[in-house]
Computed example of a mutant assay.
Amino acid sequence: MINHLIRQNRETQALLGGFAGQTLSLHAAGMQIRGTFNAEGFLEYTPDAADTEIRFLPGAVEKVLQGQTPGVGDVSISGDTGLGTALLPLIGGLRYHANDDLSRLLGDAAAGSIAVRTEKAARTVKQIGLSILEQLSDFAKEPEAPVADRHALSAWAREIDALRDDTARFEARLAKLEAQSKG
């Protein structure tokens, strides 16, 4: 899995090749990966002790999933800290490119169409969320506005989730109808 990410990030792969012979132990989201970098920048499994260990704490994973950058306190490095410090931005900068896999599996045209629809659905959901936040803000500024309690906010969050899911189902139906009309 990590080598798939490395393969999708060619510039990072080339830089990781410079660490050939160095062993890394990586801990993130309950997974542990240990390997020695080869000259091509890929990790090859080894049972040997790691030269450096990078551990992404749970807060780091949550921040990444929310589109935020983890802070210094979200990562720990042990062993050869110089090596870990050099590898951290490279490993942390690996990005998954779903379009590459979709193109390989479905072809460029289908992958492009899926990507466009996905981006459109994401923008729609984001706009809906921003609109709701604006309405909440305007409502809270009213002098007679009641203070929302935890239960009211939870109910609203569930409604927003349902709206997001409905939008996703609508996009899927639209894509299915589009595919049927072409076929």
Rank of each mutant, 00 (worst) to 15 (best):
E134K: 14
G59A: 07
F139M: 14
A98L: 05
R117W: 14
P47L: 07
S131I: 02
E53Q: 11
L57I: 02
I132A: 15
E44K: 00
H97P: 01
Q135G: 01
G129W: 05
A98I: 00
S76P: 01
R123A: 13
K63E: 08
K141Y: 10
V61E: 10
E44Q: 02
E44T: 03
L130T: 05
A111I: 04
S113H: 12
P70Y: 12
E44F: 03
V61P: 06
T46K: 00
G107F: 07
N99T: 00
A49Y: 04
K141S: 13
L65M: 14
L106W: 08
A109H: 01
S103K: 00
Q66V: 09
V61L: 10
R123M: 10
V72M: 13
A98S: 13
S154N: 08
D108R: 11
E142L: 14
I128Q: 08
P146D: 07
G71E: 07
R104T: 12
Q66L: 10
F42Y: 10
F56Q: 04
S76R: 11
D74Y: 06
L57D: 02
T85V: 02
A50K: 07
R104P: 14
S113M: 11
A152E: 14
S154Y: 12
D100Y: 04
T85I: 07
L87H: 06
Q135V: 01
L65E: 12
A109W: 00
K120L: 14
R104V: 09
P143G: 04
D100M: 02
G73K: 12
